[in-house]
Simulated assay, not measured.
Amino acid sequence: MKILVPDVPFDLDFPSLLPDGGASFAPGGPDTVATYAMTEPIPAEHTDAEVLVTWSSPPKIVADAAERMTALRWVQTLSAGPDVALRSGFAPDVVISSGQSLHDDTVTEHALALILASVRRIDVSLAAQREHRWAKEIAFAQADGVTGREYSLDGARVTIWGFGSIALRLAPLLTALGAQVTGVASRAGERSGYPVVDAGGLDALLAETDLLISLLPAVPATRHILDARLLGLLPASARFVNVGRGATVDEAALEDALRSGRLAGAALDVMETEPLPEDSPLWDVPNLILTPHVAGGRPRGAARFLAEQLTAWRAGDTLRNVATR
């Protein structure tokens, strides 16, 4: 079995973590491992690989692999979401699995940073700093009996849409800061002590939300799911943070909500088109914080995760994070 892994700037020496000490990957063993450049097409001599590991390759490179690698049986992406692989045209019988859990800690940290930056108006302070201006209006607003509560997570009603492993890391941190956290997922109930509603309870929940956090994946069912109607359900004082996928948001509707004052603020780490074009109106939208899709960083524990996945694959056991196709 030939396995292709990307030439990533982090450790992928996973054979040494296998139960057999990597013997199966030794020269002459039943398995061989080859590397490829992430930003270049798969070399012709490696198109016969049965397993492809991907990380940060441009969509056109992944689509090219889907077309030329006809022997593939399994694609393992190290990204938290498998959306690029899913829309690249791999044959229906090719298993696609994601790197969910490899980015939980860094995405949680970045989400919390964006949340606090938006709530505490760090963007306003930075803009004032560049103007050499002392932004005293922030202090006045915090002292005001009406607007003061909008500057704190203490008592804030927070909704996390996409209540998976990242949400379960983030929710306790928000709780520690005094927020009341409710999740949204495909099934209603309770997860780790947090109430969770399904699509049927979403509208009523948004109407009472101070901060909406999206961790949604990019699949056909979620494209532009946060549209003008749902944005209109949020209170005008509400804020929105997206560390999921940009395609889940109707960006024109979000821009309109922010410019008109129907939404108090937003912070996005992901956009529908990345890199964000120079002429995108999002650059100049008021009360909007943008970061360049850096929440995930590098996958943590990728070597051990891959070793476990490969061991399961070779034994015919169930893989983790298999995407529904």
Rank of each mutant, 00 (worst) to 15 (best):
I115P: 05
T159L: 14
L177D: 11
V146Y: 12
S186L: 11
L102M: 05
I96P: 09
A111R: 05
I115H: 05
S97H: 06
R149K: 10
E131M: 11
S97Q: 10
W134N: 10
P172T: 04
K136V: 13
V181Q: 02
D154F: 06
P220G: 08
R187N: 04
S192W: 03
A156R: 06
S192V: 01
G200K: 08
I160K: 06
W161N: 08
I138P: 01
Q180S: 06
K136S: 15
Q100N: 09
V124F: 13
S125G: 09
Q142H: 02
L153V: 07
L168F: 05
W161Q: 10
Q142I: 01
V184H: 12
H110S: 05
A221L: 12
P195M: 00
V219I: 15
I115S: 05
L211H: 05
A176N: 00
G200E: 13
D123Y: 08
A156P: 01
G164R: 12
Q100L: 08
R130L: 14
I160Y: 10
A113F: 12
G201D: 12
L112F: 10
V197D: 10
G145L: 04
E131K: 12
L215I: 13
A141G: 07
V146C: 09
A111K: 01
S192Q: 13
S192F: 05
S152F: 00
T106R: 12
P217E: 15
L116N: 04
T209P: 06
T108K: 08
D154N: 14
I96K: 03
D104N: 09
V181N: 04
G183Y: 04
L114M: 04
G99P: 04
T182S: 02
G189A: 07
R191G: 02
V158H: 02
E208Y: 01
R191V: 11
A113E: 09
D198G: 12
S101T: 14
A117S: 13
V124A: 13
I115A: 09
V219P: 15
D93C: 01
R191F: 06
T175E: 08
A207K: 10
S97E: 11
A221K: 14
A167H: 07
L202C: 06
A188Y: 07
R191P: 03
A117I: 00
V197Q: 10
R120A: 08
Q100Y: 11
G162P: 01
T108L: 01
G189C: 02
H224V: 05
F163R: 08
V119K: 05
L102V: 08
S214L: 15
R121E: 14
T147Q: 14
L202D: 11
G200N: 10
L174K: 03
R191Y: 11
A176V: 01
S165V: 00
G164C: 10
A117H: 06
Q180R: 15
V94M: 06
A167V: 12
R130T: 12
L116G: 03
A139E: 15
V95M: 00
Q142R: 15
S98Y: 02
G189D: 10
V184M: 12
I122C: 10
D203G: 00
A117M: 13
L216D: 15
A221C: 07
R187V: 09
Q180L: 07
G155K: 09
G99D: 06
R149A: 09
G201C: 12
I122N: 09
A171R: 07
S214H: 11
S118M: 04
V184C: 14
I213L: 14
V124D: 15
